[in-house]
Simulated scan of single mutants.
Amino acid sequence: MSRFGLPGQMSFDFGSPLGPSGPMMPSGQTQPLNFFFALMPHQAAAYGIRQITDRLRAEMHLPGSPRPIELFHVSLSGIEANERPLGALIAAARRAGDMVDSVSFPVSLDSVMSFVVRGQHVLVLACGEDLPKIAALHRKIDLSLKMAGLTPGRPAGATPHVTTLYGGEPVPRIGLDQPIRWTARDFVLVQSFVGKSHYVIQGRWPLRRAA
């Protein structure tokens, strides 16, 4: 695996294989929506992600549209489309979030790669050593969704990651000499307006401090 260094980059410490399941149209809505649970990087980590993305774009002459920094996230669990009204859907998803009991853990983005999503290449920063902890939180959220009467989204089968650029070129997996790190101290429920690059956080739940 190639290596990619970022001179002067800080190490950040702050307090999926899965992704959104695809657009849904809750009862009475005309705007396609996605709902999913996610980890979101703290501000300094998000700026580190953007810094790496900008350097790669410049050095590898990558085309495409960078994602807004406020949309950076690691997907945990999606929610399948259904016919219930929007308010009832959000209420059920919040009940699911209330049932999750898990501890905080470090997140590390240690490599860059590209995936093909709906026929276009996307650039991502991928998680490495923390995969078991992310997978454990995903399983707890999926169980809580079922207990709340919702259907968890289908597994995407990809490494947990932060998507940073759409419409670029294929990029081989590149290891980061200095990974981006933060501590996941909460997780969120995201309402995504499909095609609008706009998120609304519909719930936030703290993760307990590890013993």
Rank of each mutant, 00 (worst) to 15 (best):
M1N: 04
M1W: 06
G5R: 05
G5C: 11
M10S: 15
S11G: 10
S11C: 01
F12L: 13
D13H: 13
G15M: 11
S16K: 07
G19V: 03
G19K: 11
S21C: 02
G22P: 07
P23G: 11
G28S: 11
Q29G: 03
P32Q: 06
L33F: 00
L33V: 00
N34C: 09
F36A: 07
F36E: 03
F36W: 06
F36K: 00
M40F: 00
P41Y: 04
A44F: 01
A45F: 09
Y47M: 14
Y47H: 15
Y47E: 15
Y47R: 15
Q51G: 08
T53C: 14
T53L: 11
D54T: 13
D54Q: 13
M60F: 09
M60I: 06
S65P: 01
P66R: 03
R67T: 14
P68A: 06
I69R: 10
E70F: 03
L71Q: 10
H73Q: 02
V74C: 04
L76M: 01
S77V: 09
G78Q: 05
G78W: 08
I79L: 10
E83Q: 14
R84L: 10
R84C: 09
G87N: 14
G87F: 07
A88K: 12
I90F: 02
R94Y: 03
A96F: 04
G97K: 04
D98K: 09
M99R: 13
D101A: 11
S102P: 00
S102G: 09
S102R: 11
S104W: 01
F105H: 02
P106A: 05
V107W: 07
V107G: 04
S108N: 00
L109D: 03
D110I: 06
M113P: 00
M113F: 12
V116D: 12
V117M: 15
R118W: 13
H121N: 12
H121F: 14
H121M: 08
L123G: 04
G128S: 07
E129A: 15
E129I: 12
L131R: 12
L131T: 00
K133F: 08
I134W: 02
A136K: 11
A136T: 13
A136N: 12
H138L: 04
K140E: 05
I141S: 04
D142Y: 01
D142F: 00
D142T: 04
L143N: 02
S144L: 08
L145H: 11
M147Q: 15
A148I: 12
G149S: 05
G153H: 03
R154F: 03
P155R: 08
T159D: 00
T159L: 14
H161F: 02
V162E: 03
Y166C: 12
E169H: 15
E169V: 08
E169T: 13
V171G: 05
P172E: 11
R173S: 12
G175L: 15
L176S: 02
D177A: 10
D177E: 10
D177L: 11
Q178F: 10
P179R: 05
P179Q: 06
I180W: 01
I180G: 01
T183P: 00
A184V: 07
R185A: 13
L189Y: 08
V190F: 02
Q191M: 15
V194A: 09
V194M: 09
G195F: 04
V200L: 13
G203F: 00
L207R: 08
L207W: 04
R209I: 06
A210F: 08
